[in-house]
Design a protein around this nucleic acid. Structure first.
Lengths: 236, 236
DNA sequence: TGTAAGTGAATGAACGTTCACTCTCATCAT
DNA sequence: ATGATGAGAGTGAACGTTCATTCACTTACA
């Protein structure tokens, strides 16, 4: 990312670069193994073999298996931040979300990525330490999408009757679910999936002519007026 | 399901009933353990302890850990069949799907059920044997929903421009995703989630006044005319 | 008394992690 | 030039645990 030059930074980076390169090698190997077998079934020996490295040496770069998972979480967070930055720059938040979904699906097109993503979710649900590692990622995604939606409401691009926080979580749930189902349902090609997804988001989010009255309960009206009840979880 | 009477079937069921009761006890214990720890981390000893039973005795009822998982898959399949039967009897398929989603969310309201559900999906993505066990469930769900949607299209309740197979998979993905996210996002109460979900399904599935032109590509038109390209997966 | 139900210690394999060790190579007094 | 030095890179056998599964055994009932 940062220092591109060769002889610019004088000292203390010559060996640090090599160290980070090794860490990256281990991370890539671990992601492949975790995707293939899950956090529990993938053994450190598997990761060592995938990284072409002995066990003893691997432990010089990561304190434990858990530390590797934490590093994966951080890498994912950084990668996602780029997606959300593009969303914030979008004129129309709905189009921005559709474009974000497109990019996300493209990134999740490999064989490994969707499996790792689903494994992370499953493990986060039950293991508090893993959940803590990825909670920041989820909260940042939620905050970015919710901000985009509220901005869209203010501009008239988005239905003001929507329960923003729940709607955002629904979209995140949809994304995670699609990523998983695409592994099983091979007829969900990029083209077909993106087309249906675009229709879904447009219809769901856009303002409606007050015909479908089902909305506007006490719940959603309260969410539209002031700050909603629970912008981010962790409390009651 | 079947034999309800007490003295109807004469022989060979007196001890068979006790055997099935034990199997159910083991299954319930296993589901709790799998939900708590995942398929790999939950040990047979854990399941034995949860079921109040020794290891040797448990193996008299299930040949292996995998056999327990297969039995869980079958139990889920039977339970889901009841939901889909109600869907088929619904006059308006959209309302039927909304009602199905409501029931599904209610069933997934416990602490364990969503975790087990997500664990199943994660494991099905990578383990071919587990995938085979649950593939029938997924295909039956897909078939039931797709049939309902096509019926709804014929009756004018559902947008005929929808790519039915992809749309169905999207709804299944949404359901699975919501179930998982509700564990993390405690603000997704039953009320708020059901309200937003109803809006989403209504807007997504209902026929539209041809204003949002985004649909009607070559893909979705082909899916609307005859049998779609891939009603069920497994092939190219 | 025979058959099904139930026990729990034992088994070998595999797990995450550690540790005593070798190898590589820049440094520097000689 | 040379060879001693020592720190970091890398190795792989070994550790104590835990795993799924088995089996010789006891208990309960018909």
């Amino acid at each position: 990312m940062g220092q591109g030059g060769k002889d610019d930074a004088p000292a203390s980076t010559a060996s640090t670069d090599a160290r980070e390169a090794q860490q990256q090698r281990i991370l890539a190997a671990a992601m492949a193994c975790f995707a293939r077998s899950g956090f529990h079934k993938a053994s450190m020996q598997d990761i060592c073999a995938e990284a072409g490295m002995s066990a003893g040496n691997l432990y010089r770069y990561f304190r434990s298996k858990e530390a590797i998972i934490a590093a994966i979480a951080e890498a994912e967070r950084v990668r996602n931040a780029a997606l959300f930055e593009r969303l914030q720059r979008a004129e129309d938040p709905v189009r921005g979300l559709i474009e974000l979904a497109r990019c996300y699906l493209r990134e999740m097109n490999s064989r490994d990525a969707p499996m790792l993503c689903t494994e992370i979710i499953a493990e986060a649900l039950r293991n508090p330490e893993i959940r803590t590692m990825f909670e920041r990622n989820i909260n940042e995604a939620h905050a970015a999408c919710a901000h985009a939606l509220r901005q869209g409401i203010a501009q008239g691009h988005v239905d003001p009757n929507l329960d923003v926080d729940v709607a955002v979580r629904m979209l995140m749930a949809l994304g995670d679910g699609i990523v998983a189902h695409r592994v099983i349902a091979d007829f969900m090609t990029d083209d077909r999936t993106e087309a249906v997804l675009e229709v879904m988001l447009e219809r769901f989010l856009r303002p409606h002519a007050a015909s479908t009255v089902v909305l506007a309960d006490t719940l959603s009206s309260q969410a539209a007026s002031s700050r909603p009840a629970a912008p981010l979880p962790t409390s009651a």
